[in-house]
Measured scan of single mutants.
Amino acid sequence: TVKFKYKGEEKQVDISKIKKVWRVGKMISFTYDEGGGKTGRGAVSEKDAPKELLQ
């Protein structure tokens, strides 16, 4: 599970739902399947990112 803040809201998403991951400076950005055909997005700092996300 990845915990992150998006627009001031605390969120979390299961690693299995993450589609795409990329690095922006010291942040790790990602998109994930929100269900219902929607794609969500989020970002975590490199130090807070789970190891599975960095692979």
Rank of each mutant, 00 (worst) to 15 (best):
7 K>G: 08
45 S>G: 07
43 A>K: 13
17 K>E: 06
53 L>E: 00
6 Y>D: 07
41 R>P: 01
44 V>F: 03
44 V>D: 00
49 A>G: 02
46 E>V: 15
27 M>I: 13
4 F>N: 00
8 G>N: 07
48 D>E: 12
30 F>H: 00
34 E>H: 05
2 V>S: 01
2 V>A: 02
39 T>I: 15
9 E>W: 07
15 I>S: 03
51 K>H: 11
17 K>V: 08
21 V>Q: 03
6 Y>P: 02
45 S>P: 14
45 S>H: 15
38 K>D: 04
33 D>L: 06
44 V>A: 02
48 D>R: 10
34 E>R: 10
49 A>T: 03
29 S>M: 15
4 F>D: 00
33 D>F: 05
53 L>S: 01
29 S>G: 12
47 K>Y: 12
13 V>R: 01
40 G>M: 10
24 V>D: 11
26 K>P: 09
11 K>M: 11
20 K>R: 12
3 K>N: 09
19 K>P: 00
49 A>Q: 02
23 R>Y: 08
23 R>G: 03
9 E>D: 08
9 E>A: 12
48 D>M: 09
43 A>S: 14
5 K>M: 14
7 K>T: 02
6 Y>K: 06
5 K>Y: 15
31 T>H: 04
20 K>T: 10
19 K>Q: 10
46 E>D: 08
27 M>F: 14
36 G>R: 07
24 V>T: 13
32 Y>P: 00
5 K>D: 05
6 Y>S: 08
42 G>F: 04
39 T>Y: 11
35 G>T: 06
33 D>N: 05
44 V>L: 10
17 K>I: 07
33 D>G: 03
55 Q>N: 13
26 K>Y: 12
50 P>Y: 02
38 K>E: 07
18 I>A: 01
50 P>K: 02
36 G>N: 15
43 A>T: 15
48 D>C: 10
22 W>I: 04
1 T>I: 15
46 E>S: 10
30 F>N: 00
27 M>W: 15
29 S>K: 15
15 I>R: 03
10 E>I: 12
16 S>K: 10
50 P>N: 04
51 K>N: 10
2 V>I: 14
40 G>H: 06
11 K>C: 06
38 K>F: 08
38 K>A: 08
30 F>C: 00
10 E>L: 14
9 E>I: 15
53 L>Y: 02
15 I>Q: 03
10 E>R: 07
21 V>M: 06
39 T>P: 05
9 E>G: 08
12 Q>G: 04
15 I>E: 02
18 I>T: 02
55 Q>D: 13
47 K>W: 10
48 D>Q: 10
14 D>S: 13
35 G>Q: 05
47 K>P: 05
10 E>Y: 14
38 K>I: 12
49 A>N: 01
5 K>V: 12
41 R>H: 13
7 K>I: 03
14 D>V: 07
15 I>D: 01
2 V>E: 01
31 T>G: 01
9 E>S: 08
4 F>H: 02
52 E>M: 10
15 I>Y: 06
49 A>W: 09
2 V>P: 01
54 L>K: 08
9 E>Q: 14
48 D>F: 12
28 I>K: 00
19 K>S: 06
10 E>N: 11
20 K>W: 09
43 A>Q: 15
17 K>G: 03
2 V>C: 03
53 L>D: 00
24 V>R: 10
22 W>L: 04
43 A>R: 14
33 D>K: 04
47 K>R: 13
39 T>E: 11
44 V>Y: 02
31 T>Y: 10
6 Y>R: 07
54 L>R: 09
35 G>K: 05
34 E>P: 03
2 V>F: 13
25 G>V: 02
15 I>N: 02
31 T>A: 06
10 E>K: 07
50 P>A: 04
20 K>D: 08
38 K>R: 13
15 I>P: 02
5 K>R: 13
48 D>T: 09
54 L>Q: 07
6 Y>Q: 08
23 R>D: 01
37 G>R: 04
25 G>M: 03
39 T>M: 15
13 V>W: 02
7 K>M: 13
20 K>A: 11
37 G>Y: 04
49 A>P: 02
46 E>L: 14
40 G>F: 07
5 K>W: 15
20 K>P: 01
47 K>T: 10
52 E>H: 10
25 G>Y: 04
25 G>E: 03
14 D>N: 10
51 K>M: 14
44 V>Q: 01
8 G>K: 04
4 F>K: 00
48 D>V: 09
31 T>I: 14
1 T>R: 08
40 G>W: 05
32 Y>F: 14
37 G>F: 04
38 K>P: 03
6 Y>E: 06
22 W>S: 03
23 R>M: 07
20 K>Y: 13
19 K>F: 14
47 K>C: 09
27 M>N: 07
3 K>M: 08
39 T>N: 06
28 I>M: 03
10 E>V: 14
2 V>Q: 01
31 T>N: 04
34 E>F: 08
32 Y>H: 02
36 G>Q: 11
24 V>Q: 13
26 K>D: 14
15 I>M: 11
49 A>R: 01
53 L>F: 05
52 E>G: 08
42 G>R: 01
22 W>M: 05
23 R>H: 07
24 V>S: 14
20 K>E: 11
11 K>L: 09
17 K>W: 08
34 E>Y: 08
43 A>P: 00
19 K>D: 07
17 K>M: 14
1 T>K: 12
7 K>S: 05
4 F>T: 02
25 G>N: 07
41 R>S: 07
39 T>G: 04
28 I>S: 00
8 G>A: 04
23 R>T: 05
51 K>D: 11
48 D>S: 09
24 V>P: 02
47 K>I: 11
23 R>N: 04
26 K>Q: 12
40 G>T: 05
53 L>N: 01
19 K>M: 14
44 V>G: 00
7 K>E: 07
1 T>V: 15
18 I>N: 00
39 T>H: 07
33 D>T: 06
40 G>K: 08
45 S>V: 09
33 D>H: 05
36 G>F: 12
3 K>E: 05
27 M>D: 04
9 E>M: 12
21 V>H: 04
25 G>T: 02
35 G>H: 05
36 G>W: 08
38 K>G: 07
41 R>Y: 15
11 K>E: 02
29 S>Y: 15
12 Q>H: 10
16 S>A: 13
16 S>C: 09
52 E>W: 14
41 R>E: 08
15 I>T: 06
30 F>M: 01
10 E>M: 12
36 G>P: 08
6 Y>H: 09
36 G>A: 11
34 E>N: 08
31 T>Q: 06
24 V>I: 12
43 A>H: 13
54 L>F: 07
17 K>N: 10
28 I>L: 10
4 F>Y: 05
13 V>E: 01
45 S>L: 14
42 G>T: 02
13 V>I: 14
42 G>S: 03
12 Q>Y: 13
17 K>A: 12
18 I>S: 00
51 K>S: 12
38 K>W: 05
24 V>F: 11
7 K>W: 08
16 S>W: 11
29 S>A: 15
37 G>M: 05
8 G>C: 05
27 M>C: 13
50 P>I: 05
29 S>P: 02
20 K>V: 09
46 E>M: 13
4 F>V: 03
40 G>P: 02
12 Q>D: 07
14 D>C: 09
20 K>F: 11
2 V>Y: 02
31 T>M: 11
27 M>K: 07
54 L>A: 06
20 K>H: 13
10 E>W: 15
1 T>A: 10
50 P>G: 04
32 Y>V: 02
13 V>L: 06
46 E>W: 15
1 T>P: 06
52 E>I: 11
37 G>I: 03
24 V>W: 14
52 E>A: 12
20 K>N: 09
2 V>R: 01
53 L>K: 01
46 E>Q: 10
7 K>Q: 09
51 K>E: 12
1 T>G: 05
46 E>R: 11
52 E>V: 11
3 K>H: 10
14 D>K: 08
55 Q>E: 14
30 F>A: 00
9 E>C: 08
16 S>Q: 10
